[in-house]
Amino acid sequence: MTAAKPPDNGHRRGVASLPTNPRLLPRRVSVVLGWSTLAALALLTLFGLWGAPPDAVQGDAQRIMYLHVPAAWLAYLAFTVTSVASLLYLWPRTRSTVWDLLAGASAELGVVFTGLTLLLGSLWGRPVWGIWWAWDARLTTTAVLFFLYLGYLSLRRIPASVETRAKRCAIAALIAFVDVPVVHLSVNWWRTLHQQATVFNPELNPRIHGVMAFTLWLGVVAFTLVYVYLLDRRYQLAVLEEDLEERELDAAIAQRVAEAPSPRPAGVHS
């Protein structure tokens, strides 16, 4: 072992443990996906604003549903992926940096879209219910979900050894996920101002008219594409930044080693 090589004691990941290919999808697929996402969103706008008829009771304001419901779906999807990735990280046989970074990337998307869901819901609630916000079970649990994963994202940014951070984050993500089914089922368990699920209701019988149902499904498909595209981009960024950080650390350690009078560095790692 040469003095220039930092001791590998598991506190650092090392560039070598990072995936060589920072992309989840091949470059070409990602480009095609990006354009299809845009097209799907444009089609959704077309159908959402003009194609679908206004609702008999709620009128035009109901069109916000075509964004609100898909955004909520995306948030559920993102947190589910985070939990699966966290579980795979914690399971010793599948432990890999990939899962940790994927969980983080997905959780960030989840937080962004939970926030968007709350915002869109508020914009829907004002004309339809008459209020911006109600402290009913669905809204409250969704707000709690937002803050749970906001906490998770701060936990990801803490200065600590990489292994410790990844493990703690994975456990935190799994604990936070408990709230996701609570959010979805809250409208069935409790009497809320928020309406019950239209499509994924307990009877599995969508109570929605043809073109409106089509537009809603279009929204779900479009937002799923948004999710896959953004997850690929965000994951790539996570790998690159992790790589950069490791290299900067390596450089700093090498510099310290060069400065040190003794060939064996002591306490270069935290």
């Binding site: 706008t45 604003l49 035009d60 304001a61 069109r63 916000i64 964004l67 609100h68 955004a71 968007l116 915002l119 869109l120 914009l123 829907w124 004002r126 004309p127």
Partner: peptide, 10 residues
Amino acid sequence: GYIAAAWSAT
């Protein structure tokens, strides 16, 4: 107005 706000926010 609400619909425009929702779409532009997204």
